[in-house]
């Protein structure tokens, strides 16, 4: 089980600030990694660089041994924190779209998940509520048999019932040959999912390690460690 993702000395500079500062991180296959931190800590910047929406100022990123590009985009399944589907589409259109562009899209799994989320193919994207959109996006993202799943705030802004469904779907999707990166600030709800956690502040890694080991070492939950690390 080698490293699926290798990040070396990653920096992203803007005029007014450094979003990421010399960040290095390795992620093995089969691991679920939680990237935790307050808003502005660099979580989303890191994610966008991994998915190719942003370019780093310095440093290297390797996903499955490749630089970020067309190949990595074909093995990375990304869930952004916004509604990114074209709003003229129906759910059926979105399915066909994913099937067309991603050879790793599993239509059967997708349909099962869609059922589980209580959505139907003839619904129009523009008529879905926020929670339904989130569920749909997650359905599409998890139905791909990708090597790396990147979920950016998957349960933020979603009601508790939908939240449970989403967490269920994430857990059931786990498999040893893929990895997952999940960013969230809702630590308590998600902490039992993580193998490893990374605490980010102002573009730097404050703390990282195996979740259970950290619990043992500190005698605290990850949520409490988060409060301790980021608290006033």
């Amino acid at each position: 089980m080698g490293n699926l993702v290798e990040i070396k000395g990653l920096s992203k500079n803007y005029l007014s600030k450094k979003a990421l500062n010399n960040l290095s991180l390795d992620i093995e296959s089969g691991k679920v990694v939680g990237i935790l931190g307050p808003n502005g800590s660099g979580k989303t910047t890191l994610i966008k660089i991994l998915t190719g929406l942003l370019r780093q100022s310095k440093g290297e990123v390797f996903i499955d041994g490749h630089n970020v590009g067309v190949y990595t985009k074909s093995i990375v399944s990304y869930l952004p924190d916004r509604n990114f589907l074209y709003n003229w589409m129906t759910i059926d259109d979105a399915f066909k779209f994913y099937k067309d562009f991603y050879s790793d899209f599993d239509e059967n799994r997708g349909e099962k998940l869609l059922d589980f989320m209580k959505l139907e193919k003839n619904m129009k994207i523009s008529s879905l509520s926020k929670g339904m959109n989130e569920k749909l996006n997650l359905t599409l993202v998890l139905s791909r048999r990708a090597k790396l799943y990147i979920l950016d705030e998957p349960i933020a802004g979603v009601d508790p019932v939908a939240r449970d469904k989403i967490l269920d779907a994430i857990i059931n999707n786990y498999n040893e040959s893929s990895s997952m990166i999940i960013t969230t600030h809702l630590v308590r709800d998600m902490e039992s999912l993580f193998d490893e956690v990374v605490f980010l502040r102002e573009g730097e890694i404050l703390l990282k390690g195996n979740a259970e080991a950290l619990r043992e070492e500190k005698g605290k939950s990850i949520d409490e460690i988060y409060k301790e690390v980021f608290g006033e």
Binding site: G30, K31, I171, N172, Y174, S192, L193, A211, E212
Partner: peptide, 17 residues
Amino acid sequence: VRELSSELKVNPNTVQR
């Protein structure tokens, strides 16, 4: 492992351990 992790909502590796 899969069933229990799904039911308890935890990472399967944790159940494995």
